[in-house]
Amino acid sequence: MDAVIFEKMRVELDGRLVLEDISFRVRQGSFLGVIGPNGAGKTTLLRAMLGLVTISGGRIEVLGRPPGRHGAEAHVIGYVPQRETIPRTFPASVADVVMMGRLCCKGRTRILSRHDWEEVRRGLELVGIESLAERPIGRLSGGEMRRALLAQALCSGTRLLVLDEPTVGLDLPAELEFYNLLRRLQHELDLTIVCVSHDLLALAGQASELICINRMMHVHGDPQHVVHSHALREAYSCEFDFLAGEIAHHDRAGGAV
């Protein structure tokens, strides 16, 4: 079954064509990496998927419904935004921030129950930061902060996880650790993952499928196919020489990046 379907999707922002003719499908339980150079429209693609921008053509279906039409079921989609820092003085603990992810499963009274706090605790355990529950959210390291946002996205029966540059600003060990965690959660929770990054190499080693966009779809397939395709060169155009060197390096390292 397909968790996400894009058909000839097109987005214009302020009269400017940002994305066109985007078609792909994401199977339930797979990990799709979306790559492309800076300004390629990757974030817009995610925002369209989440119902945050109106599409001007084509069709999107997310878990069987159009984006933003999940009503009381909105919580089955978890979203980890691109975020490098959180203000040091933000007055909430890690547990409180994770709890925000459960607000969409509450009724109008918004009264939190013991069950909600148990789910928050479970979310923190899933990402391995239960010991930080009471720490102010602004006082975490970059890696811990990403885990907290991941817990927020996972604490409400999430089936589809959408991530926008989740490792930007992290050093290489922290980035690897984050992707390993993501892959473990993918299997443990049977999650479908859609992850955007400009970092081709990081995603190529992790995702089960890649698509490369630069306003248009350039290529869709398994990472090895995408990384060596001619279309990638088109998408990244001038950046390709630089990339080619890094890909060669990546291959020599046996794909262990």
Binding site: A74, I77, P81, L103, C104
Partner: peptide, 11 residues
């Protein structure tokens, strides 16, 4: 904390 995420969750 994050208006965009709140919107994405249908808040």
């Amino acid at each position: 904390f994050d208006e965009e995420v709140a919107r994405a969750y249908g808040r």
